[in-house]
């Protein structure tokens, strides 16, 4: 069954390749243009990060700078101790945070997708309600610090946003439309337990959605700084984005207040590349997660062959 499916889809593909038609070409051109629009501003960031500050001051952000320079990167690397520690914390947070999210959410979503489980009527409302009402910053802060004792505890980076209604509902929708009810019923008739059915039969079909939720959760962990800012006082626990924001704020503060600064500050200011440093900072934060991206992509852009595993 499995083999024949792949064969047929391969033959479909072959036929398509023979017909690389005008419409296919048009399609690719369109995608190419969209991708180009997406990437051009990012290219600008790279170029500015390697432009000299005087060039930026004179002609602004430009694809053709007057002068190249590594000054900005060198400036950011001054904070390399902090950055390396922050990379450690952030990678830890991203990996474990998104894994935990995927694991718990997929189980929860599967349960919610089961129409024959009567408790779902209430569980679904329970889940949806959280998208509508949130306690706000004050509520979360008081509960997390006073009751759960999460202040200055690294777990605060992972636990509070672990299960969100959006993720759960999206996964539920996926299961409902992609996992045939008959499959679950037949597994039950074969005498498989609920948990066995989920892990052995349903989960393999859920892989694309797990990968995409995992990726999205990884992105939000990667970009996270507010939790770290509010809950983790020690500099040693700063996440990457927080360190970068602190460096940026430092530049910003000096720049905007030069009327009221001391001599020392103003002299220090002269050595700081501001705009180019900002862009260099950005490069430091984009690179690692982009490297991780293809791993996820493999699973949610499998395309036609993915579905054939079932059966």
């Amino acid at each position: 069954m499995l083999c024949s499916n792949i064969q047929t889809s391969a033959s479909v593909k072959n036929k398509k390749i023979k017909r690389v038609t005008f419409s296919q070409l048009l399609l690719r051109m369109f995608i190419g243009i969209v991708a180009l629009i997406c990437v051009l501003p990012v290219v600008l960031i790279v170029i500015v990060a390697f432009s000299s500050e005087s060039s930026v001051a004179e002609i602004g952000f430009s694809y053709i700078p007057k002068e190249w320079s590594f000054e900005a990167c060198r400036y950011v690397l001054k904070f390399s101790d902090q950055l390396i520690r922050a990379y450690g914390i952030t990678i830890w947070e991203t990996v474990f945070g998104s894994l935990l999210t995927v694991f718990i959410t997929s189980m929860f979503a599967y349960v919610l997708s089961r129409r024959d489980f009567k408790l779902n009527k209430y569980l679904t409302k329970f889940v949806i309600f959280t998208t509508l009402f949130s306690g706000g910053m004050l509520g979360s802060y008081l509960i997390n610090t006073n009751i759960y004792g999460l202040k200055n505890n690294l777990l605060v980076l992972i636990l509070p946003h672990c299960v969100t209604a959006w993720n759960t509902v999206v996964m539920r929708t996926f299961v409902r439309s992609n996992v045939p009810q008959a499959l679950i019923e037949s597994a039950e008739i074969d005498g498989a337990g609920e948990i066995y059915t989920f892990f052995k039969i349903v989960m393999p079909i859920m892989v694309p959605v797990m990968a995409s939720i995992g990726f999205m959760s990884a992105v939000s962990h990667w970009n996270e700084w507010q939790t770290a800012y509010l809950y983790l006082d020690s500099e040693n626990y700063s996440t990457l984005q927080l360190v970068l924001i602190k460096i940026e704020k430092d530049i910003d503060f000096l720049r905007k207040n030069s009327g009221t600064l001391s001599t020392e500050d103003i002299l220090a200011l002269k050595d700081i590349p501001s705009e180019s440093a900002r862009m260099a900072i950005l490069l430091f934060s984009i690179a690692p997660i982009m490297i991780a991206y293809p791993f996820f992509q493999k699973y949610f852009i499998k395309g036609i062959t993915v579905g054939s595993v079932k059966g």
Partner: peptide, 12 residues
């Protein structure tokens, strides 16, 4: 596919 899940559970 099972490799993905096995890996996932191991890392978890």
């Amino acid at each position: 596919m099972n490799k993905f899940i096995k890996g996932l559970s191991a890392v978890l």
